[in-house]
Simulated assay, not measured.
Amino acid sequence: MPLGTLDRTPPPFFKQGPSALSKLMVCSALALFLMVADARFRITQPLRAAVATVLYPVQWVAMRPVFAARIASDYFEALSSAQAREQEARKRLAEQSLRAVQTQQLALENQQLRKLLGLRERITTPSQAAEVLYEAADPYTRKVIIDKGLTSGVVAGSPVIDESGVLGQVTRVDPLVSEVTLVTDRDQAIPVLNTRTGSRGVAYGDPHEGGLELRYMAANADVQAGDLLTTSGVDAVYPAGIPIAKVVKVEKRPDSAFAHIVCRPEGAVDSARHVMVVKPISSQLPPRPAAPEDATAAARKEKGLRK
């Protein structure tokens, strides 16, 4: 091929256009112009609106997982917060219920103590307050333990009463505590006086029949339901006039000479908390006078000493 026929123009790869600096300046000027024009005349607003309209469905679909995750997170946070508030509310309700019960119990104890103080003022016999600690473990007896013993001056046989009536009698005394046998115990007996008729009798403990049974009363005795039985004071133990029980049922049996009389104790034998321990009446009685023979022997002995 002849040399004159060769194309001596450089290939497109090596063609030299505008320089990079020129392109940068042109693009910068165009960008600046577009920014100023958009800021002043908003010439690109229709284009933006069109692009936003076209891209909105894509944007909506792309944001659904984000919204779902946000809703789920808000739901679980709200559920956890609601459960925490519920637990706190239940706790506060339980505390308020406990305080209400304690307040009610304290009010009841205060009322009982006031009645005991009033009863103590009416009784001239020396007495002291005590608190019931617990019931005896024997299921076949009706006994309670109080927090006063020998160190507090309690003696065996001391009557125990509450604001409503007689509860029982101290049957065993330890240094710090004492055992009280309630009037409803089957081995307990107490002389009583019918305040309506003035007749005397003896009430025995009978837990199966309601508390007490007035035994050995004649079938024709004047005893009616509702009669109040009080201490008679003839046993030298209980002060006279303290309520013991009320008659609730009188049965006259044709096959027996005695009536079956059931009584309900006036004292709170099943729920007493604060009680009063009274000195037995026998501790306040004057000493029994000496027999005539003893007096004569004492006179002779004194006369012999003088000689």
Rank of each mutant, 00 (worst) to 15 (best):
P57R: 02
A39E: 13
H260Q: 06
V101P: 00
L119P: 12
F67G: 02
I43A: 06
P254G: 07
K143A: 09
R90F: 03
Y216I: 11
S80G: 04
F14D: 15
L229F: 05
I161S: 01
D138Q: 08
A218G: 13
A72P: 05
Q112L: 07
E95Q: 12
T124K: 14
T53Q: 08
L106V: 02
Y216W: 15
S19N: 12
E266K: 00
V58Q: 05
A298H: 07
T195G: 03
D7W: 11
R142K: 10
R253D: 07
D147P: 01
S282W: 03
L176C: 05
G241Y: 11
A156T: 14
T230M: 12
G201D: 13
I244M: 00
L108R: 12
L6Y: 14
A20W: 11
L228D: 12
M1L: 12
A69C: 04
A297S: 04
V54P: 00
G198H: 14
T181C: 04
P280W: 01
L55F: 06
V183N: 01
A221R: 13
L98C: 00
I43V: 14
Y75F: 10
G210Y: 00
R264N: 00
Q96H: 09
N110T: 15
S164G: 03
E209T: 11
P280Y: 01
T151H: 03
G149A: 05
D162G: 02
V166W: 00
I146H: 03
P2E: 10
V262H: 07
P2G: 13
Q112N: 13
G168V: 06
L47R: 13
